[in-house]
Design a protein around this nucleic acid. Structure first.
Lengths: 110, 110
DNA sequence: TGGCCATTTGCCTATATTGCCAAATGTTTT
DNA sequence: AAAACATTTGGCAATATAGGCAAATGGCCA
C-alpha cells in the first residue's frame, strides 16, 4: 500500500472510528430527528455530561456533527445526514449473523 | 437508554468497530472486486501475515466477510457487500471537512 | 455582584487495540 | 518422511480509548 493509499484509508478510518461507539451511534440516531443540547443527550444516554461532551467533540472533529451555542446551551445537529443510512446495512450484517448462528445450531441438533 | 436500546446500539457498534481501521477498510475495498487469500492481502497492505489474519478474523467475527479454505490457502470474500457503499458517505464527510477548513483559512486571511 | 446552570477541559485509572515475533497446525511437494 | 508454504494462535509491549470526578469558563437571573 503506497503512501497515498494509506493516507486515504487512514482518513476514512478516522471517520468510521468516530462512529464506532454505542453512545455515539445513539447520538447520531437522535440527531437524525432533531437537534439536541449536551445535557439532553447526556440524560438520554445515561452518562455524565462531560462524557457526552467528549463524545460530541469526537463526532465534531470527524466532521459528522456541528454545534451552535444558544444562550448557555450548545445545540448539536447532524452535518452529514447520510451517515444515518449506514444502519440499514449494519442491521443486514447483524441479521445475517443471527441467521448463520441459527443454522449452525440446527445443524448441530440434527 | 434502556437495556434493550443499549443492546441494540452495542451490537451496531461492534459491526462499525470492525470497519474502523485503515487496514480493514482496505481489505473490504479489495474484497469488493474479488476474493483474496490472506497472503495476498498481507502483501498488499504491507503487514505480517499474522496481522492480516487477525484483521480478517475481526471482520469475520463481525459477520462482514466469510472464508473458504481451498488447499493450503484460505480465501476471504465479502459476505455483505452493502458495506462498500459506506465509503461514498465517508468521502462526503471528508470533503465537507476539507471545505470547512478552507473556508476558515480564507476567513483568517481577510 | 453572587449564585446557578451548561459546557468544556484536565487528570487519572481501567480497559481495549495493534502488530510483531515465535510457535503450533495443516497442506502440498519432493 | 522431510522440507516448504499458508494460516492461525499465544504472548507481549506500546498505544489508544472510555468515563468519572473536579476544576475552569461563560451565560443567565435575582
Amino acid at each position: 500500500m503506497d503512501q497515498r493509499t494509506r493516507a486515504l484509508f487512514d482518513a476514512r478510518a478516522r471517520v468510521m472510528k468516530a462512529l464506532a461507539h454505542p453512545s455515539r451511534l445513539f447520538i447520531v440516531n437522535e440527531l437524525g430527528s432533531k437537534e439536541r443540547c449536551v445535557c439532553e443527550l447526556a440524560k438520554l444516554i445515561g452518562v455524565d455530561m462531560s462524557t457526552a461532551s467528549k463524545h460530541l467533540s469526537i463526532l465534531k472533529a470527524a466532521g459528522i456533527v456541528q454545534d451552535e451555542k444558544r444562550g448557555s446551551q450548545v445545540y448539536y445537529s447532524l452535518r452529514i445526514p447520510c451517515v444515518l443510512k449506514f444502519m440499514d446495512c449494519v442491521e443486514a450484517v447483524l441479521k445475517s449473523s443471527a441467521e448463520k448462528i441459527l443454522a449452525l445450531q440446527q445443524e448441530t441438533a440434527k
